[in-house]
Write a protein that binds this DNA or RNA. Sequence first.
DNA 1: TATGAATGAGTTTTCATTCAT
DNA 2: TATGAATGAAAACTCATTCAT
Lengths: 192, 192, 192, 192
Amino acid sequence: MPRTKKQFEDMRTARRVAILEAALHVFAEEGYHSASISKVSKYAKMSKGLLYNYFESKEELLKILIGSLIDDEIKMLNSILEKPLTEESFIHLINESVKTIKEHPKQWKLYFSMSFQGEVQEIMKDKHSPIQSLFAERFIQFFKDKSHENPLQQMQYFMTFFTGMKNSYIMQPKTYPIGEMKQLMIKQFITS
Amino acid sequence: MPRTKKQFEDMRTARRVAILEAALHVFAEEGYHSASISKVSKYAKMSKGLLYNYFESKEELLKILIGSLIDDEIKMLNSILEKPLTEESFIHLINESVKTIKEHPKQWKLYFSMSFQGEVQEIMKDKHSPIQSLFAERFIQFFKDKSHENPLQQMQYFMTFFTGMKNSYIMQPKTYPIGEMKQLMIKQFITS
Amino acid sequence: MPRTKKQFEDMRTARRVAILEAALHVFAEEGYHSASISKVSKYAKMSKGLLYNYFESKEELLKILIGSLIDDEIKMLNSILEKPLTEESFIHLINESVKTIKEHPKQWKLYFSMSFQGEVQEIMKDKHSPIQSLFAERFIQFFKDKSHENPLQQMQYFMTFFTGMKNSYIMQPKTYPIGEMKQLMIKQFITS
Amino acid sequence: MPRTKKQFEDMRTARRVAILEAALHVFAEEGYHSASISKVSKYAKMSKGLLYNYFESKEELLKILIGSLIDDEIKMLNSILEKPLTEESFIHLINESVKTIKEHPKQWKLYFSMSFQGEVQEIMKDKHSPIQSLFAERFIQFFKDKSHENPLQQMQYFMTFFTGMKNSYIMQPKTYPIGEMKQLMIKQFITS
DNA sequence: TATGAATGAGTTTTCATTCAT
DNA sequence: TATGAATGAAAACTCATTCAT
């Protein structure tokens, strides 16, 4: 008695998830280029062949892992930035970003580690630039509203800190006090 | 007319430097794992065989490139931090760090890109921890002297920004206004 | 209401035919070695597993496809060549051959394409040689009866043309005027 | 003392030739798709890795093997067909073709075996069609000059035989009397 | 019977490192 | 010293065949 269509679909979904998790783990641990599909499949407790039944290539795994991260981030940013930034939504944005990174530290580690090489740029080509303009625009306006004398610069200053916070947390997720840093940042850039 | 011993040594040194420069260029461009020794040797205008006459392995090149960066950084930090931090030496430290990163952007890019993978951790194991304790101690004292209510936290906050600045500059050396950011940072953490 | 034995057998036969047709299509299209069983089963609208319920292996499919072609051809030749060749039966033979190839172009294409590799030779080993002797004998006699001075040679000359006609038609079934060529051939070798 | 540039070049040339010969042998024997690079390199008595030092891919080997055959053939045809065909040049053309095929039977076998699959078409795309028009034109004129009532058809009839002759020789190079067949063909199509 | 997930041996290809000259 | 040819182990990927359901 063959499996029903639903059974097959459930199996496939479960497998896909298992593979993506394994790939994420191994890629984040060893770096995308050093990691081998062999290791990924071993970690996912299946044969290499089966992995290729679910994904076309090693590159596809990377694209999905990073692409989904970017997509979520963009969706979050878009929803918050659809209106001009207020103090409230500014805080909300920061909280959401920190929440995301705490929930997906491996993914973010992979993303950061790849961002120094060309591969990621290609993945994000079309996705990133619209949101980046919006992001810049909203933050500049935000600081302008606060009568900041150089809002563009203040935005860059904020971005610098934001980047540093993410980077630091990724490198030392156990010890870096991201919650405290977040609070300091909020305080600094709201009262500025 | 046979070469003198000194001439030989000079030649060897020149070659070593050429190889390291080539490796740095290629590694930073393509990423350590994707880069091939073949390309490095071509870029250094010599044969693969000769390259192996000067260095044991690809990994050794990486270790030297990153190791020397770390060593310089540590030397710089040690000399500045041998006495307690003053406002002056604090500014000096920041200026020196920015100068270093502007002078060796490829090396720093390589360092950052590798720092997400296991390889670098191993390289720096013994080097880093003593300086890090000193660094922490001096900065905590620095902020304590400024009657900061939570000097440890303030140091972490400072480190966060510092990391973000380096990261941002490496990612966009052409457009990131590192000079301005540095000034803002100095102002913020001195008057805090 | 359980199926009767006959119904079962009919179903099995229909399936076998469907699989063979699918295999023929896919093999002829992509070449035996490049074609995959997966594609065959998809084309036959069933699962791979079921296909293997009907046939042992990919090779068996090939053997049956080519074997049946050869068997039909041999049967046809045998029936025509059971008596000495006359002008009438000579014409009949050619007509039948052309008819066969026009009816089964894919099979012939597959046969030709495989005939350059070892696989086919093995399939035909035992089948071919008896009919070939008979064929040679009848044609030699045919041309001897026409007082040809070198009947063996004339048979080889005829075979050459015959081969060329098949090959040309297979390569360009749309444009090659096989009917005209056949008529010319008949005329040439009958009046010779 | 390192090898001179010339020594290296000679070595490379010799290796290239050895590899191409091995590939030709193995491809012709087993068919391109069944043959493995592993076997080719074994036959050429070298490691797989070295083979890839000389050629980009399995496909490149095929392209070179077949491409060079086609190029030679086209060159030959072009030189003979630059003027209208005479009886003499007609004979010359046939002699040259037969000579070529006798000199490179494996290459022709490979070419024929591949011509039933898509790969070859791509290799010859641009090369073939100009020569084919010229070929057709010259032969049609040739038969028109002989007051043939249907010169196009006669050309096709000739081509059919020509194809058959090549095919037959390739399939049975030991036993097929290509010389005799060639003479018969010349006689037939010249006096026709 | 029927499905398609799963396996594993095999394929092509890459590249750090060694070696003959 | 200097070259680049040569190796071999390992990588990504494919697919005929088997298997659990």
